[in-house]
Amino acid sequence: MDQVTSYNLSFSQLFHKAFLKREKQIFENGKNALRIFNGFTEGFPEISIDLYGRTLVIHSFNKTEGNAYPLSTAIGEDAANWIPDLKCILLKERFSKNPKKQQGTILFGNQPDVEIAEWDTRYKINLQLNRDCSFYLDSSLLRKWLLENAAGKRVFNTFAYTGSLGMAALAGNAKFVIQTDLNPHFLQIFSETAKINQIDPKRYRIIPGNFFRVASDLRQNNNLFDTVIIDPPFFSKTDDGIVDQLQNGIKLINKIRPLVAEGGNIITINNALFLSGKEYLAQLEKICTDSFVQIKDFIPVPTSFFGGEFNQEHMPADPAPFNHSTKIVILEVHRKDGRYE
């Protein structure tokens, strides 16, 4: 059976069911961004599909070079029928040996969308910047939390990537935001986002650099923050330190604790697929044995991102008590010295 026949028999119905679940969100606003099919949780792990404005992004996890095209063509035909104003279709091949194919090949249209809107805030995007899409859809409700809770706060956004979490804090009237990432090219997208939202440059600072070095410099200068966001890559190694979300994500929390003011928050995001929710909580509880760090809340992943129900068969680890393998926790921090300023 060829791929297109397989698509017609197995995938099309799954895709249409997923589309109907999200149809209201899709047509609410032509600038919305959301996942409209999650293969890992909706029964077809080879494919996930996002919509950024009116650009359809097909993520193929097929490990055979070239096999994604027939399937993606059929997907595009269905999507074009259901979303008549679709203007571009982009295929990203995660396991291709060609970096350009990982970043995305345009199958239809000319120019992918360069801007989306979420919670009444505008964001610049570059859908071919990287293997991903430069804007993480699974952290949508965290951006909403920042919009609602960042007013008057000093915020430090580490591993900021394109700075969407810091932008949400600024849109929520944060007093001041520092965005840091190793790659200055990624941070340039935040600069464009801040500009279209008319954010006063005096309210934020961009620091390209290594997390460990930047955090040490800020500590030596006695900086304190009300909110620190830790959203690291799954694994990274530099001369200054190692990031390993599966084995030692807690190390980053301990590194950043001295920068948190009395009563402040650390927002930690762990998206390790093979780390279960219970295992992650057990790691966090090791630093909550005294009264200085406490688990305050969880932030769920939007149900649109995974379809609202799990096909556990395709999940590497059970995320419970979280609703997805992207595990977002708000920690409340207290200091022995009680220092706020």
Rank of each mutant, 00 (worst) to 15 (best):
A117Y: 08
D217S: 01
I116Y: 07
F40M: 12
K202E: 14
D50I: 05
Q3K: 12
S139C: 04
F95S: 15
K286C: 08
L146R: 00
Q245C: 08
K87M: 13
I49A: 09
I269K: 05
L147M: 00
N248A: 10
F11D: 10
L14V: 08
G249R: 05
L281S: 14
Y280K: 13
E341C: 15
Y136I: 00
K17T: 14
G209W: 06
L137E: 01
L224S: 00
T64N: 09
F186V: 03
P233A: 06
I178P: 04
L284E: 12
Y69S: 02
T326E: 15
G163D: 02
P233T: 02
G308D: 06
G308E: 07
V114I: 08
L284M: 09
P233C: 04
Y7A: 04
N183W: 08
S276A: 10
F186E: 06
F37E: 11
D50Q: 02
I47M: 13
E118Q: 03
A151R: 00
G30Y: 11
V114D: 13
D290S: 10
T64L: 11
S6G: 08
I328W: 15
I256V: 11
N210Q: 09
S139K: 01
K251W: 06
G43Q: 07
G249P: 06
A272G: 13
F27I: 11
N126V: 05
F186W: 08
K237A: 11
Q247I: 08
F211P: 00
I295M: 06
P321H: 12
D297N: 07
K21R: 13
C288Y: 04
D297Q: 07
S134T: 01
L273M: 15
D113I: 10
Y123D: 02
K175F: 09
S216E: 05
K87A: 14
T55E: 06
T180F: 02
V260R: 05
G152D: 00
I26C: 10
I250C: 03
T41M: 09
G76Q: 11
R205N: 12
E309I: 07
L165H: 02
I266E: 14
C133S: 05
T303G: 00
G166C: 03
E77M: 12
F310Q: 05
E115Y: 04
F225V: 00
K255W: 05
T41R: 09
C288W: 08
N221L: 01
V333G: 15
K327M: 14
N98A: 13
T158I: 01
F37T: 09
I206H: 08
S325T: 15
F292P: 07
H314E: 10
N254P: 05
N38P: 13
T227P: 02
N311Q: 09
R257V: 13
P233R: 01
N62Y: 04
P321V: 14
F306S: 06
V301T: 07
P319F: 13
F95P: 14
R219N: 03
Q179M: 01
K153G: 00
F156S: 01
S276M: 11
A261C: 10
N8P: 02
K87P: 15
G308W: 10
A74D: 08
L252R: 01
P302W: 03
A282I: 11
N265W: 11
D240M: 01
D50C: 05
D85P: 11
T268N: 14
L273N: 14
N67P: 05
F234K: 07
V4T: 09
H334F: 15
L91K: 12
